[in-house]
Amino acid sequence: MSFEFVAGNLALDFVATVAERRTTAVERIPTPSDLAQWLADAGVVDAPPAVGAESYARAIALRELIWALLTTDDSRPLPADAVEALNAGAAGPAPTAALSPDRSVATTADLDACLTAIARAAVDVFRPANRVRLTWCEGTDCTRAFLDASRAHNRRWCGMAGCGDRAKAAAYRARRRARASR
């Protein structure tokens, strides 16, 4: 399975492993081995870590916790128990990068350290500098959040390869129909 990393933040990409949450809710990491591969593909570690059923369930619980925090109405405070759980997750050990004499660098971690990296990235989303850049994709069924790093801060879609292409194609078809009806 191939994964997309277009959010500009590890935690936002992790939350996006469930696509179209409000309609089809497509699970992109349905098994522990898919989660392990996602962690390697995301660059958290160089090789997929061991993931068992219990640790997979903890990872999914973290993902859903982050989703709940992201979707909390901005006019309300974040739930204290959810904030406490995220902060506890962010306080764990982090992946370890080690330099070798041949100048190569290897990053290793167990699943707990990988989840710590994701929790820390989630906390980072709420920093004021990132919170103002947090944007939701305008794709019809998309439920993906991303950090808008565009110069004009006007990015509309999570990625051009999917949502952006579909939106532009739909706009083109609408213009053609409008011209044809004149």
Rank of each mutant, 00 (worst) to 15 (best):
A171R: 15
C163P: 02
L134G: 08
A117T: 00
G164L: 03
A59K: 01
E64G: 00
L111H: 07
G52H: 11
T116K: 04
P95Q: 08
V44D: 02
A59I: 03
R21W: 15
E20R: 15
T108A: 11
E64W: 05
A161C: 10
I29F: 00
A117E: 00
D46R: 00
D165Y: 13
V26H: 15
P93G: 06
R103P: 07
A53Y: 10
A97D: 12
T107E: 12
A167S: 01
T72Y: 07
P79A: 07
W157M: 00
P49N: 12
A121Y: 01
V45F: 01
V132D: 11
V15Q: 05
A180G: 06
A88F: 00
R156M: 06
A42V: 11
A19K: 06
Y172F: 08
T24E: 11
D110L: 05
A25Y: 15
A152G: 12
V18L: 02
A145V: 13
D141S: 08
C163T: 03
D141Y: 15
G8T: 14
M1K: 09
R21V: 09
D112R: 12
R131V: 13
P95C: 09
P49H: 08
F14Q: 01
E84D: 12
A119G: 08
A40V: 00
T24V: 14
S2D: 15
F3T: 07
